[in-house]
């Protein structure tokens, strides 16, 4: 209600909004108070408007923003030939008469829009951009490395799949590779946990000796119940494929029976 004058004024002459920064605050206030005003009733509004018609004529500007208001209030009115002006002009005359015009321009006296400063700024900007691009580039490069490693991991899985397909693995039933597997190749099923690593290691040892070692090592870490033999890369494929199998198939028969439904 209190700000109704400002609000009213603002709505009446909406096109006269100033473009200063503080404008939103008064106008927001104006909206709120205008709502309050509507609730207040007509008599008081008319009274207020009448009051404005007589005394508020000088304030034709819409909802003066805070900064405009302050500027108007704080800035003094310019007076021609004031005492200060006379004194300043006298000082100017004196200084001119003394002929100090040869005084060197100090840095603090140079208020030109400075080309040098702009160059400095652009150099700084360039350096910043360079640094940022290096940082981002480094991060991207590191990401490439990790992504490649991730791909290798994928490849290993791929090998595992291939191995499984070759038929020597005792692989997890329900994996997608199992569907392709010819039934004849398949050895008697063993447990999920052991068969996985065995399937990887067994047939590969001839071709690559390192990968299965890694794999089985990892698998060992992951699953503690795995026998040590499975990870040995140097073993001939046959023995490897069959030897660990027997105890395992015996051991894990129960496990598979139990774990498989859980996994699914």
């Amino acid at each position: 209600m209190n700000g109704s004058g400002a609000g009213r004024r603002c709505y009446d002459s909406d096109g006269q909004h100033g473009d200063s920064e503080g404008r939103e605050m008064p106008s927001g206030r104006a909206e709120k108070t205008d709502m309050g005003e509507r609730q207040d009733g007509d008599g008081r509004d008319r009274d207020r408007d009448g009051h404005r018609a007589t005394s508020g004529a000088a304030f034709s500007i819409c909802a003066p923003s805070v900064d405009a208001l302050l500027a108007a209030a704080v800035r003094g009115r310019p007076e021609a030939h004031s005492e200060g002006e006379v004194r300043a002009v006298a000082a100017f005359r004196e200084a001119w008469a003394q002929g100090k015009r040869t005084a060197r321009t100090r840095r603090r006296d140079d208020w030109r829009p400075n080309a040098r400063r702009r160059v400095q700024l652009s150099i700084r900007t360039t350096l910043a951009v360079l640094l940022a691009s290096l940082t981002l580039g480094g991060a991207a490069f590191a990401a490439i490395g990790s992504a490649a490693r991730g791909d290798n991991g994928g490849d290993r899985d791929g090998y595992g799949d291939r191995d499984r397909r070759t038929g020597t693995s005792y692989e997890v039933p329900g994996r997608p590779g199992d569907a392709d597997r010819p039934a004849g190749d398949r050895p008697p099923k063993t447990g999920d946990t052991d068969g996985k690593s065995d399937g990887k290691t067994a047939p590969d040892t001839g071709k690559k000796q390192e990968k299965p070692a890694e794999d089985s090592g990892k698998a060992k870490e992951d699953k503690a119940n795995k026998p040590d033999k499975a990870g040995r890369p140097a073993k001939p494929p046959h023995t490897e494929a069959e030897e660990p199998e027997k105890p395992k198939s015996a051991n894990n028969a129960e496990e598979t029976g139990e774990t498989r439904p859980e996994k699914k």
Binding site: T102, T105, W111, R112, P113
Partner: peptide, 10 residues
Amino acid sequence: ARDLGRFKGD
């Protein structure tokens, strides 16, 4: 007034 000669700018 004294330093006006040193000033550079708009």
